[in-house]
């Protein structure tokens, strides 16, 4: 049966991870460029999504009802619509409207496809980060805040010295999951032709007709990237671990 054969083929070691695919200089150069683009997408989006998260969570604790509702709507919208459609909406719909006249007199997009990928990914992941940080802030017991109040801390000091450091610690596991998802979601940039890892790999396999080998290299690359991120987060979590609590 074909299915069985295919499956057995998959298990052949030389097919499973045949790095010969990227052994020639040209392809290796492209692969590395794609990997670098994916890393750039990931790092910038992670940074911006964390910023969105912290700001959003701070606003959700703010007295202004209008602001709180606005952030609530933002979160609800971005958490409950497909990230791909969000990306298309930004790139094809908003991007078409946002144009400036270039040097040659023709309208040019104001923001590149890379820029839209960053914006879209940051907002998508940022929406959940808002939730994560808010939950972290709420996990800080009222009594700990009161102790700081009794010592004469101002609201801002309480937030920066007590609440935030504790909130970050409880939020880390959930945050890690979300950031791993964000790295995986960078593949969507393929759809708007950002030359990231998946896009480059697709180019290589359609030129060299080495789908299977390239595909395996690709999967392993992503699992590797995620592993690096998980490792970094783990180190961070460990560095922040307070002696006397938990493991």
């Amino acid at each position: 049966m074909d299915l069985a054969n295919t499956f057995i083929d998959w298990l052949r070691p030389d097919w499973f991870l045949n790095l010969a695919v990227v052994s020639d200089d040209y392809n290796r150069g492209r692969y590395v460029a794609g990997l670098w683009m994916t890393i750039k997408l990931s790092v910038v989006s992670i940074f911006l999504s964390l910023l969105v998260g912290v700001l959003g969570a701070a606003v959700q604790g703010a007295p202004s009802r209008t602001l709180r509702v606005a952030v609530g709507l933002f979160v609800a919208f971005f958490r409950n619509t497909p990230p791909l459609v969000q990306l298309y909406f930004f790139y094809f719909a908003i991007g078409t409207v946002l144009r400036i006249t270039g040097e040659n007199g023709l309208p040019q997009p104001l923001i590149s496809n890379f820029g839209w990928a960053i914006i879209s990914l940051s907002l998508f992941a940022g929406a959940l980060n808002v939730e994560i940080f808010r939950a972290g802030v709420e996990a800080v017991p009222r009594s700990t805040v009161e102790a700081a109040e009794a010592l004469g801390y101002t609201r801002l000091q309480i937030y920066t010295d007590i609440v935030l450091p504790l909130a970050v610690r409880v939020s880390l596991p959930a945050l890690g999951t979300n950031l791993v998802n964000l790295v995986k979601t960078t593949t969507l940039a393929y759809a708007i032709a950002v030359p990231e890892l998946l896009y480059i790999s697709a180019q290589i396999w359609s030129e060299d007709l080495n789908v299977r080998e390239m595909m395996n290299v690709l999967l392993v690359s992503y699992v590797g990237l995620v592993a690096v991120l998980v490792w970094v987060l783990h180190r961070w979590e460990k560095a922040l671990r307070i002696p006397g609590y938990g493991e």
Binding site: P141, S143, T144, A147, A150, I162, G244
Partner: peptide
């Protein structure tokens, strides 16, 4: 003020 639950800053 000293509280029943100490409320030290755990970090």
């Amino acid at each position: 003020m000293v509280f029943q639950q100490y409320n030290l800053f755990p970090h």
